[in-house]
Write a protein that binds this DNA or RNA. Structure first.
Length: 266
DNA sequence: AATGGGACCTGCGCGC
DNA sequence: TGCGCGCAGGTCCCAT
């Protein structure tokens, strides 16, 4: 999906245009994306409520409703929230009292919508580690020091640090000059410090640019995020490293495409 | 405990 | 033109 910067972008977009609006009707075109409760209860539990507040926990969006319930959305790989929506690709459409729709689109159907009495009880959220901005450098270094696992899959482990996915793991490691397959406990103090700093800087810049539109991700308005043009390694296999001209390599780590510069990243 | 593979789905781009 | 394959931002589950 959409990683932390993309979900944060959608959250900020939602705050500007959706808060305070009333959901008058929920149209379920594809029930599979509604994971909890039944589609019928989902619909009845939402209709008539106002959208009070928008939260984000790592990659999960939470819409707090005036009836006390929370609507959560995990976009996974291809989920989108679009407003005003055309309804064309919509899996679920939330019809608002102003006549416009908030559409949940999701080509691959991995995405998840839930209506919960309390989002804090969602197991997935309970299992999340702190986001990079909420983690101390000391803690980051401590965890790396005791893990032999490859650094890139570790950065994507949501129970350790949450919000980083495949794109920002790759970009953060490039900027930290660390090879993605290095055992986490092999990083020196200096390397860990630089990596942590660069991960946070990358995420911050990506948020400022409205996220990375590589494939399906779009902002709430449907326009593309502006950060993909700043990617230094992600999706650039075979192209020259922007720092040293060496061709960027692609390998598989943990089953995921992993992009890095074999010269800059040691 | 940690790692690797497959599963969940659909659709796109590529090589033949 | 058509077909088969590999690939895709995430996460879970199972086997080793």
């Amino acid at each position: 999906m959409p990683e932390l910067p993309e979900v944060e972008t959608i959250k900020r977009d939602l705050e500007k245009v959706i808060v305070g609006k009333k959901i008058t009707d929920v149209c379920v075109h594809h029930p599979a994306v509604i994971r909890q409760p039944s589609p019928d209860k989902f619909k009845k539990g939402i209709e008539g409520a106002l959208i009070k507040n928008i939260l984000r926990k790592a990659k999960v969006l939470i819409l707090e409703l005036s009836n006390g319930k929370s609507l959560t959305a995990h976009l996974k790989m291809t989920g989108q929230l679009v407003y005003p929506g055309s309804g064309v690709k919509s899996r679920v459409s939330f019809h608002l009292s102003n006549g416009k729709n908030l559409d949940f689109n999701d080509q691959r159907l991995f995405g998840e919508l839930r209506l919960l009495d309390d989002w804090r009880s969602l197991k997935f959220i309970q299992g999340l580690g702190p986001e990079p901005f909420d983690m101390s450098e000391t803690r980051f270094k401590e965890i790396l020091a005791k893990k032999k696992t490859k650094i890139k899959p570790l950065l994507m482990d949501q129970s350790f640090i949450s919000g980083i996915g495949n794109i920002y793991a790759a970009e953060g490691l490039f900027r930290g000059r660390i090879h993605p397959a290095r055992p986490a406990n092999s990083l020196s103090d200096k390397e860990k410090e630089l990596l942590f700093k660069e991960i946070k800087a990358t995420l911050k810049e990506a948020i400022e640019a409205g996220g990375s539109s590589v494939d399906d991700y779009v902002r709430l308005s449907g326009e593309r995020g502006g950060y993909a043009k700043y990617h230094k390694v992600y999706g650039r296999q075979g192209k020259p490293c922007l720092a040293c001209k060496t061709p960027i390599k692609r390998i598989a780590l943990g089953g995921r495409g992993t992009f890095f510069c074999p010269k800059c990243q040691k």
